[in-house]
């Protein structure tokens, strides 16, 4: 389980990274992160939406309401924008710095990503 602070810091890069794989809606995005983390990252699901809306206002992502093909219900799909890809690059760099430094200090060989 991640601490509150780490969840706050990692949400934006996680969302951006999932969206580089293609557009997605909130519920599916949460499922993807849960599966990828092996259940270690468990969000309070409703809390993701204010973050998505903030990211949209910052022009990192864009959204569109569309009717889903599987059940005919409307869902809000999010897509990453050019600014989002740029932000993700800088996030990647920063997370790598922290990761590599900690791994050196703990004398663990860093995983290659």
């Amino acid at each position: 389980m991640l601490s509150k602070e780490l969840v706050a810091a990692s949400t934006v890069p996680l969302v951006l990274s999932v969206l580089t794989r293609g557009e997605n809606y909130g519920y599916q995005l949460i499922q993807n992160v849960r599966e990828l983390s092996g259940g270690e990252i468990e969000w309070t699901e409703g809390m993701l939406y204010p973050v998505l809306h903030w990211m949209e206002r910052e022009n990192l992502i864009e959204s569109e309401w569309r009717t889903a093909e599987d059940n005919g219900r409307r869902r809000k799909y999010y897509r990453i924008r050019k600014e989002g890809r740029k932000a993700l690059q800088s996030e990647q760099q920063q997370w790598n710095v922290v990761h590599t430094t900690l791994m050196k200090l703990w004398k663990i060989k860093p995983h290659s990503i």
């Binding site: 969840v7 706050a8 934006v12 309070t44 973050v51 910052e58």
Partner: peptide
């Protein structure tokens, strides 16, 4: 005006 704002704190419960 578009500008940088502090994002919502993504709290964990």
């Amino acid at each position: 005006l578009p500008r940088r704002r502090r994002g919502p704190e993504f709290r964990h419960s």
